[in-house]
Amino acid sequence: MALIGYARVSTSDQELQPQLDALAAAGVDRVFAEHVSSTSTHRPQLAAALDYMQNRVGDVLVVVAIDRLSRSLIEFATLMERFDKEGLAFRSLTQPFDTSTPEGRMVTHLFAMFAQMERETISRRTRAGLESARAQGRVGGRPFVVTPDLLESVLHLKTLKKTHAEIAKALRISERSVSRAVAELRRAGSLS
């Protein structure tokens, strides 16, 4: 049986070292670590850890906390089901999760539900805050900067009957940015 560690932080300004230290202290044999959001579907180091554990009955995936692995109950339950089928286990260092026992499996699923509920609560609060800010006339996000060069390029491509998708691809901007530039051109009377 090998202990395989997985460490993850969501942003580049967060530090992996505390997780790596905790995993080393727990005696993990190998660690896979990455900087990526848990909501991202592309987590190459998690995929590498799971590939490494394939056909290694008895191995245990160890994380510092359950939210380092997943915040989605569905994804977490799917992983636990896969582990059961492949004879693998899961352990969290800071929470009482050890799926090598029936009790541990039950506790793991209960806490995964609480983690999902917490995430949904945070999301609901964030949406409420954004709606409140909008009602007060504040808009978040990066401001759209319309440069004369961008407007000229969009105007040229629009006169060539290019679609918004084609213009966005050619100028390496979003389709929404193209729409905003087109609206600006129409306001200025350059496009009909």
Rank of each mutant, 00 (worst) to 15 (best):
L23W: 05
I4E: 12
P18V: 13
A181S: 14
P96C: 01
P96V: 08
F90N: 04
V28P: 11
R82H: 12
V9M: 04
T147R: 10
R56M: 04
N55M: 11
H42K: 06
V57E: 11
A77S: 14
T78R: 10
L160I: 11
A165I: 06
H42Q: 08
Q14P: 01
D149S: 14
A65S: 15
E118N: 05
L185H: 01
M1E: 05
R124P: 00
R43G: 01
R119E: 05
Q116L: 00
L155I: 05
Q17A: 11
R82D: 08
V57Y: 13
S174R: 08
R124F: 10
A115S: 05
A168F: 11
G129R: 04
Q136R: 15
R8M: 02
F97D: 02
N55E: 15
V64P: 02
E120M: 14
R71F: 09
H109G: 11
E75C: 04
R124G: 11
V182F: 12
Q54H: 12
I122C: 10
D149Q: 15
D29T: 14
V9W: 12
H35I: 15
S12V: 13
L3V: 03
R186A: 15
R124Y: 15
V36Q: 08
S38G: 15
V9K: 08
A25L: 14
P18G: 14
R56C: 02
S132T: 08
V62R: 03
S177R: 01
L46C: 00
R142T: 01
A115W: 02
V107S: 00
A49R: 10
M53A: 03
V178Q: 00
F111W: 14
G27I: 03
V178N: 09
P143C: 11
L16N: 12
G189K: 10
E184P: 00
R186L: 00
A181T: 02
G104D: 13
A115P: 06
S190W: 04
G141M: 10
D98M: 08
S153F: 05
T11K: 14
D84M: 08
S177E: 10
N55W: 07
A115D: 09
I4A: 05
D59K: 00
R105H: 02
V139A: 13
D59Y: 08
Q95P: 06
T78I: 02
